[in-house]
């Protein structure tokens, strides 16, 4: 039976890709896109039209329309209220990252979903990258020996809009780009971050938000990692950014450049050179896994706890930059 899905807001651009993936699953008979609601009705109506589905005037109306699950993609600070609303209505939730902008919000979301016996999954599509899956297989098979250190990057460009309004986003580049690689490291190592040091600046955009983050993470198993979460890609950079992991082990070194499967387009009309990605669609893996968990009742592969643990590293990074010293985790509840 097809899982009936509603989209709660398109404020985050990833919602478009997720909706597209739901439509792909619809064509496979595994899901159905029931409709869209958005606190920005114009945006919501346009998205509903784009994906050939219904627009609902309110989130309540969407939740009343017989959906099994929702995909929550509003501005970061609205993750909590929309997730709580969906949980109370008994709907499973796939929530965009970062899960929350504070530990209290994240904890409340997890508790709400638990209280109403619905599943909460955090949208970390990088876990579904075939390159990452292969890397994880090699690490787990011991091909690199014992993992000792990781160098990660998740760089991009300033997305603008609400992403640079800290009241809506919870920060800037650090909250935006810390969580993906942190989640991959946690997953790869099976160990939690116990200390965070961060150098943060606003040097690229000179705004009231951070655009540069250089984090150093220490894990409970003594592995250390650095993570560059900066919006440092120039406007003319040929692609949006990157997700990279270099894993140093006792028996070898592996380097993953997740989005390196591209051809180069030299476009005279646009006077631009761009990378045309032809690698696998990792968002499809994410949405497909969520739909499968909803359909079968099996636990989601990436939980709310995973989302909160990764977000907590970003919170700790801000705290570290403020204090000018490393910060121990877990942070106080």
């Amino acid at each position: 039976m097809a899982v009936r899905i509603g989209m709660m807001s398109f404020a985050h651009m990833h919602a478009y890709s997720y909706a597209h993936c739901v439509k792909m699953l619809e064509s496979e008979g595994r899901a159905q896109l029931v409709g869209v609601a958005d606190h920005d009705p114009e945006r919501g109506k346009q998205a509903a039209q784009q994906y050939d589905t219904r627009f609902f005037e309110s989130y309540e109306d969407l939740l009343d329309a017989g959906v099994d699950a929702v995909i929550v993609c509003p501005e970061n600070v609205r993750h909590r209220p929309l997730t709580e609303m969906a949980a109370q209505a008994g709907k499973h939730v796939l929530c965009e990252k970062p899960l929350a902008t504070s530990k209290a919000d994240g904890r409340a979301m997890i508790e709400a979903c638990k209280a109403h016996s619905v599943q909460l999954m955090t949208a970390f599509p990088c876990r579904f990258s075939p390159s990452y899956i292969r890397l994880k297989q090699m690490v787990q098979a011991g091909e690199l020996g014992e993992v000792l250190a990781i160098r990660g990057t998740n760089r991009g460009r300033n997305p603008g809009g609400w992403f640079i309004v800290p009241e809506l986003s919870g920060g800037g580049a650090v909250i935006d780009h810390t969580v993906h690689v942190t989640d991959l490291c946690r997953d790869l190592l099976g160990s939690e971050v116990v200390e965070v040091y961060a150098e943060i600046s606003n040097g690229f955009c000179h705004g009231d938000f951070d655009d540069t983050g250089m984090l150093t993470l220490t894990f409970a198993n003594d592995v250390f990692a650095t993570l560059d979460s900066s919006w440092s890609r120039p406007k003319v950079f040929p692609t949006w950014g990157d997700v990279t992991l270099q894993v140093v082990g006792t028996k070898g070194l592996a380097y993953m450049d997740m989005f390196a499967q591209n051809s180069t387009l030299y476009d005279d009309r646009e006077m631009r050179i761009t990378l045309q990605h032809w690698g696998s669609n990792i968002d499809y893996g994410l949405v497909s896994a969520f739909v499968e968990s909803v359909a079968t009742g099996k636990p989601v592969p990436i939980t709310g706890e995973d989302g909160l643990a990764a977000a907590e590293v970003a919170f700790a990074a801000y705290e570290s930059a403020k204090r000018g010293e490393p910060v121990r985790l877990p942070l106080p509840e």
Partner: peptide
């Protein structure tokens, strides 16, 4: 004979 450092 393995050494590695990340410095900020």
């Amino acid at each position: 004979h393995i050494d590695y450092a990340l410095i900020t």
